[in-house]
Amino acid sequence: MKAVVSIAGSDSSGGAGIQADIKTIAAHHLFAETVITALTAQNTLGVTGVHEVPAAFVSEQIDAVFSDIRPDAVKVGMVSSAEIIRAIAGGLDKWHAENIVVDPVMVATSGARLIGEDAVSALIGELLPRASVITPNIPEAQVLCGCELSDEESCERAAVSLARSLGVNVLVKGGHGAHDANDVLATRSGETHWFRHEAIPTSNTHGTGCTLSSAIACGLACGLSVPDAVAAAKEYLTGALSAGLDLGKGSGPLDHMWQNA
């Protein structure tokens, strides 16, 4: 059985973060492993507390995972400090990790920055260049490229520019306040691929970014090419949103097990 490790924060409500990643990996019939970077107190209404894991313990978790059940792919989610980012980058280098998918969570839906400037610098300089694929949404891509993205042409230019400058495959995710879910992938070789989907009419979107990046990692673990892994992940996410799960008083979670319904 193939294994995928999620390096991310824990979501106590189960909709995003480590918990969403475990469900996504299990839904793909792969073995889920975890490296927890933070504990959060949160639900569908928001986050009320964060307890960051010491960077040294993040490194210890990475060593424990890779030294025994070596993962075939890695998903990295929100990391809040430069120290933790450096610990992750060092651990991935130490174990020669492959098929690394980084979801660079930096900007909230409200537009507020979620991590400090030192962490952004460490993310751009030390973690993103080690990735196989990065999956920024439009606000995050704007931070990474330093320009405003207002239409499909600007999104494609940003994806190509980031792919060239970082040396990685870049998926710029649309659907951020839009009426569609059109994403553009720029590959290391300079190719571009558009993945077009209509937006699912639901307010229950908690954990969509986590779910998509984990599903991409699952595809890569199974030997899919990057474009094929993205296409398969988009289909899985569309199904999870379309299933119509409605839990909680705010933006609820997806139905990760929709294929088993």
Rank of each mutant, 00 (worst) to 15 (best):
A163R: 00
A163C: 02
A163S: 15
A163Q: 02
R164Q: 14
R164Y: 07
S165P: 00
S165E: 14
S165Y: 02
S165F: 02
L166V: 08
L166D: 08
L166N: 09
L166A: 09
L166P: 08
G167S: 05
V170A: 10
V170W: 09
L171S: 04
L171N: 01
V172K: 03
V172S: 14
K173W: 03
G175Y: 12
G175I: 13
G175A: 13
H176M: 13
H176S: 13
A178K: 14
A178P: 00
A178F: 08
H179E: 15
H179P: 00
H179R: 11
H179N: 14
D180V: 07
D180K: 09
D180R: 12
A181P: 05
A181K: 05
N182I: 14
N182R: 15
D183H: 11
V184G: 11
V184T: 06
V184W: 03
V184H: 07
L185Q: 02
A186H: 01
A186W: 02
A186E: 01
T187N: 10
T187W: 10
S189V: 07
G190N: 10
G190H: 11
E191W: 01
E191H: 14
E191T: 07
E191P: 02
T192P: 05
T192V: 15
T192E: 06
H193A: 08
H193G: 01
W194E: 12
W194A: 12
F195T: 12
R196A: 15
R196D: 12
R196G: 03
R196L: 09
H197Y: 15
E198D: 15
E198I: 00
E198N: 14
E198Q: 14
A199W: 04
A199N: 08
A199H: 10
I200Y: 03
I200R: 11
P201I: 08
P201H: 12
S203G: 13
S203H: 13
S203K: 14
H206D: 13
G207M: 04
G207R: 06
G207K: 07
G207H: 00
G207L: 10
T208I: 10
T208K: 09
T208G: 07
G209K: 01
C210V: 01
C210A: 04
T211S: 15
T211R: 06
S213R: 08
S214Q: 07
A215V: 03
A215P: 00
I216H: 05
A217Y: 06
A217Q: 04
A217I: 05
G219V: 05
L220M: 06
L220H: 03
A221D: 02
A221I: 01
A221K: 04
C222W: 00
L224D: 14
L224C: 06
L224A: 11
S225L: 07
V226M: 03
V226Q: 01
V226D: 01
V226N: 01
V226L: 07
D228I: 03
A229H: 05
A229G: 08
V230N: 11
V230P: 05
V230G: 11
A231W: 00
A232T: 10
A233L: 06
A233K: 09
A233D: 10
A233I: 07
E235F: 05
E235V: 13
E235R: 14
E235W: 04
Y236N: 01
L237I: 14
G239L: 08
G239R: 04
A240H: 11
A240E: 12
L241N: 11
